[in-house]
Design a protein around this nucleic acid. Sequence first.
DNA 1: CGAGGGTTTGAAGTGCATCAAATAGTGTGG
DNA 2: CCACACTATTTGATGCACTTCAAACCCTCG
Lengths: 237, 237
Amino acid sequence: MTDLKHISLFQNASKEFFDSCARLAHPHSFPKGKILFIHNDPAEYFYVINKGWVKLFCETLDGTQSTIDILSIGQIFGEDSMFEDNLYHYSAEIVEHADLIQIPISILRQEIENNSKMALSMLEFVSRQRRQKEKEIEHRVIQNAPQRIGCFLLRLIKNNTPQGQTVTIHLPYDKTLIASRLGMQPETFSRALSKLKQHTGIRIKGAMVELDDLRQLIDYSCIACSSERSCKSSKEC
Amino acid sequence: MTDLKHISLFQNASKEFFDSCARLAHPHSFPKGKILFIHNDPAEYFYVINKGWVKLFCETLDGTQSTIDILSIGQIFGEDSMFEDNLYHYSAEIVEHADLIQIPISILRQEIENNSKMALSMLEFVSRQRRQKEKEIEHRVIQNAPQRIGCFLLRLIKNNTPQGQTVTIHLPYDKTLIASRLGMQPETFSRALSKLKQHTGIRIKGAMVELDDLRQLIDYSCIACSSERSCKSSKEC
DNA sequence: CGAGGGTTTGAAGTGCATCAAATAGTGTGG
DNA sequence: CCACACTATTTGATGCACTTCAAACCCTCG
């Protein structure tokens, strides 16, 4: 359970919070494909990801899905039901074998109510996510498919990577999933990626993407973005 | 300044908060077209709208705009810079002559830090907005232009309006603005609205929209939505 | 009445979706 | 270690939705 201490959201959590977690939180492993909960299920727990990937999504009656987010190590989900009517407002599916910690939402709720520093951390956290969603809408309006992929790649690169140096990016999950994350069809993703290749000189081998110069990718993708800094260094994107 | 007491976000604010506001907040009137601040301006104040309409937007170097939101009476904006680097992360423009109250962000910040009930209200507020943004992304993925307009109309209708009764909706601002709010071109909006007319039997006279039966509009628009309830009654949409 | 913005309509182009099929890649059991 | 099955990915062909550019129309307000 020491893992929780490394989650930035919990930097200001109290000893009592961690103690409660030690008593009431459960680590769990889940295989790929497992549905953790679905839209409108009553929400008792939120989850912390220690390993693997989790997809959050909604779907309509006719089965059409829209991917809300795909999360990984250090990220949390399900906590937002606290502010709604204690129902999950999305479905969650394991897309890469995952280790999760299941924690009663009530513990978090209590901590937020009693520990004002924690409440502030939570506010920062939610506010940042709100902004990211706004950015995402902007991107879908302004950027075309290849640019959205370029932006996605840039966000995968660590902030301290210097320019003018060969960089290798490992796509974190299936291309089909990336496509859904970016709001496009798999076919479109495939075609858009090769268009991106033509425009920026990136090299693609399976799930590996290599590029010699960040500059070109930034120039191509971030023209269509209002952020001052590129998506690589901006916390917004 | 009594107006502030009616803002639901401030229901749990302390007497000290309202006192500080009485001393340091300024009411202002602004004409249509006035730019309040632009992206990356240092943020000292947030705003409460008493009257009129305000557009929040971002724009890229080449002038392409993306509308984040269009707000009106009882809504606030600019407060989110508190959790960023004290810069506005969007631009704000008056789109209908507006009366605003300008309040130092520091007052709100202090209130959140000292009054845990207020922190919770704020969390609820931001969390709801985050969810609305998620819904908006879903809508743009799943719904086509006429359906998005239908959904927009439904949200304009008061929740307690009964079905099977003629309803008149007044478009709150320019059609061009509604178009930008929904992420489409004015021409697309115009065409999509008449397509919606064909499908649902609504009647359009300028800025007035009339319909005999909500049911038809709901059936047409909300098929492509994952929300349990229709956009009319759902707090999500 | 006439100027200027908002709105609609028309014609043509573009980007993405869709459907269908081929190909590559991965894991399985023999 | 190979053949098979199954899934992920790519490619091709076609269609549709929305955009873009251009022009007409309409409305309001001085």
